[in-house]
Nucleic acid binder design. Structure first.
Lengths: 350, 350
DNA sequence: GCGGTTTTTGAAAGCGCTTTCAGATAGCCA
DNA sequence: TGGCTATCTGAAAGCGCTTTCAAAAACCGC
């Protein structure tokens, strides 16, 4: 059965509880609790005795009982659109890192870009008793915030900025606009966009808006046939670029919603005999691992995922501990210049 | 404040508890519990009343209290080496899908390829009261299984097969051997391996062993200078292939621990003027999203991650519900042939 | 060695739910 | 309608921990 060194453990019949420890140490459960939670005011000898007894018995406090008693679960929930998406995974990972350090457990759920599903998953987490909640974006089911408020737990939104809610993110419109301006500065006049699904996705929407506005400010327009919305992934990028070519004069540069989409678009461009960046400049989003290794290396907007996760974690921890926080934390996205962008071969003049 | 339609809600002072619902419905908390847990034997009118009262009050049962009472947390833990790794993410995602359907919550933790850390994280989850645990691989800290046993909860290992423990996985040695045999059949004689870190990683180790044995069976050997161990990632693959070239006669084919490594190796090969697959055949592992889109498209060993996750989930759910299960589930990995492998240009004859 | 602190300590009361058990109701048949 | 059984229902006892509160013990200066 069990073979921890030194002592035969109780037959698995019942795992030890605080009372057992108290008994063995010759104190009350109150003292056991005090010792195990590090509160002061326990005489050294008793403290020792409790420690040893707990050790000997292999005592592990029952989390449910503790949670019930303290009314804190020491768990935090996160609902992200796609738990398999690299960008969200990175944020979750760094978010969890912080939580873990503070003794919290992360419980992540998948909303699949659907507000109803997001509400359902968030509700599930609330029922589980999470002490805080992380969401992505600023568009949610109308009931969601009421439900969260009802539980009286703090919430923080990530990835985009919000004027109403606590958030940690960046200005999607501004960073996409920066990419657009960069392309215009290079001499591009016909610029296209391939974004992922924009429904219920403020990030995607804001990016396109930002680009359109940036172009407008320079006297250009985002032609409808150059504004493509497709499903995520490399395949989506290929399809998207194909669609774009189907619509009249081809763009000389495109901005893509993710690096995967950009990769797909580059593949399709090459398949059509177009040179990147000679005939087509390409900009991605997220700075995926593979972005610097593509051929040509991909210019992309780097989202500082780790910082977002850390900041969101710190924010929530602070609020759960009743400390003051700033409502909005902006983590700047950064345009990483690589080889997939260049001036258009012959400056388009339309 | 809150604005659910129809009724003013209690000021957030205290969220409603079962007693409130009981009061409002004119029944006891016992009946409330019975209704909310769907147990039979409650008269229709009372059931209705309880349902409506719960609805009106926005009642959500306190998970901790329920867990304390039922002694089941309805949560399952998973400790994976790297929560950001695509292969593990996919398994976690499908694993969670199943758990979620059965009403369980997944709590995932990161072990970082370190047995001590794995033990620590698993202990943390056990303390939280998970009802089941998923691990990766068959190598663990010597104390880990004793601790799990002490909590009396079921555990399932994934990704590799085990002769001792319940598991869902595939035969890493056999599938890697298949890749090696395929290369030998193509006419390759000098075959190299670039694997990720093998310390505390039975999957990596088994794969290399499988390859070495397959080669041996065909009268070939895996030269030490062609057996490279590097850190994961595209950069690792580049470095690995560079190292391999530094050691004498270059291989005509390599098998890589992940598609990322394979991608890196291909980049390095091209940078050296080697043609893939003309001068070098490359096989990866995992069939990542980008594998079919590389140039040339990558031959790789596809791990059926979704099946592993589902099977692991089903296994654990069954055991938590006291149903019988098979101890070992093998999910075959599959060699996906693409364009990165071909016969060697001039059959090596040494 | 004594009265008056200042620490330590344990008994006991929850936390909010489930579940047992016995009593109350309803249902059924004669 | 009465008696007996089959259903329903509520009171109350936990689940295992934290925390309050008052009592006990230790400490202190004189």
């Amino acid at each position: 059965m069990l073979d921890l060194p030194g002592e035969i453990l109780e037959p698995l019949a019942r795992s030890p509880v605080a009372r057992d420890v108290a008994h063995r140490a010759g104190v009350s459960t109150a003292t056991v609790s005090r010792v195990l939670n590090g509160s002061a005011g326990v005489r050294a000898d008793k403290r020792e005795a409790v420690m040893r007894a707990a050790q000997d018995l292999g005592f592990v406090a029952n989390g449910a009982a503790r949670a019930l008693s303290t009314r804190r679960f020491m768990a935090v929930g996160a609902v992200v659109p796609n738990i398999e998406n690299e960008a969200f995974v990175r944020v979750l990972s760094s978010f969890q890192e912080r939580l873990r350090q503070a003794g919290y457990t992360l419980v992540a759920a998948n909303a699949g870009y659907d507000l109803e599903d997001e509400l359902r998953e968030a509700t599930f987490l609330l029922e589980r008793g999470v002490d805080g909640l992380m969401l992505v974006g600023d568009i949610h089911h109308p009931d969601l915030h009421a439900r969260i408020a009802r539980h009286g737990i703090p919430m923080v939104q990530t990835f985009s900025l919000s004027r109403e809610r606590p958030c940690v993110g960046f200005d999607n419109a501004a960073s996409a606009a920066r990419a657009a301006n960069y392309l215009v500065d290079l001499g591009h006049r016909r610029i296209g966009v391939i974004s992922g699904l924009r429904k219920d996705n403020d990030r995607g929407g804001a990016r396109v808006t930002g680009i359109a506005q940036a172009l407008a400010a320079r006297g250009l327009t985002l032609a409808p046939e150059h504004d493509i919305e497709i499903s995520y992934g490399i395949g989506g990028g290929r399809d998207g670029f194909r669609q774009m070519l189907a619509g009249g004069a081809p763009p000389t540069a495109i901005i893509c919603g993710t690096d995967q989409i950009a990769f797909g678009a580059m593949i399709e461009a090459r398949a059509r005999g177009l040179d990147v960046p000679g005939d087509l400049s390409v900009i991605g989003h997220n700075d995926s691992d593979f972005a610097p290794f593509l051929d040509p290396a991909l210019t992309t907007i780097r989202i500082h995922s780790a910082e977002i996760g850390h900041a969101a974690g710190d924010h929530l921890i602070a609020r759960m501990q009743g400390r003051p926080v700033v409502r909005l934390t902006e983590i700047d996205a950064e345009l990483i210049l690589r080889a997939s962008t260049a001036p258009p071969r012959k400056p388009a003049r339309d």
